[in-house]
Design a binder for these strands. Structure first.
Length: 159
DNA sequence: GCCAACGTTGGC
DNA sequence: GCCAACGTTGGC
């Protein structure tokens, strides 16, 4: 029984990996790895499905906000970077027989012509409850409601 | 660079 | 299981 498509917001520091980096990736597709937070891990491992929609959010930068749209093309699987001693994401707690951390693959869909900034998001009454706008919420992977998704897509101009 | 808020660690 | 200390996140 196909489940309804779910919506997510995923944060990335554009200095590390931006929406343009995703666009330029092979097939526009990249592994989302390095998530080291249990609540975010649970989403990746248990709830992400191929076809789910993603808001690509730029964080820790001059103009934080929504930068584009992506789609999940591979559901959660053990994060290989956790097994790699040379990776900065290496975590000896995780091994292939008992993986702790999970990745998904996401594919570029489109970029916003302009970043939808936090002030712009905060100015939309429909987004009052959006997690990313709440102070103290720092989940790097978080669910978005269908109505939040719709409001944002209607607001954005796309490249 | 500051700092508030959060998550994790580790002693007890 | 408590909780203080520490490290990290992330907006400003």
């Amino acid at each position: 029984m196909p489940r309804r498509r779910q919506y997510w917001l995923m944060k990335s520091e554009p200095d590390e990996f931006s929406i343009d980096d995703l666009r330029r990736s092979k097939n526009g597709t990249a592994r989302w790895d390095g998530v080291r937070n249990y609540q975010a891990r649970n989403f990746l491992r248990d709830d992400f499905e191929a076809g789910d929609a993603v808001l690509f959010y730029h964080s820790s930068c001059d103009s934080p906000g929504i930068a584009g749209e992506a789609v999940v093309v591979r559901k959660g699987y053990p994060d290989p970077s956790a097994f790699d001693p040379d990776s900065s994401y290496y975590d000896p707690k995780s091994d292939p027989t008992r993986p702790v951390w999970y990745s998904v693959d996401v594919k570029f869909v489109r970029a916003c012509r302009n970043i939808i900034t936090r002030p712009a998001l905060a100015a939309m009454p429909e987004l009052k409850t959006m997690l990313v706008l709440k102070r103290g919420i720092r989940l790097s992977v978080q669910p978005v409601t269908e109505s939040e998704w719709r409001v944002i897509l209607n607001h954005a101009e796309w490249v």
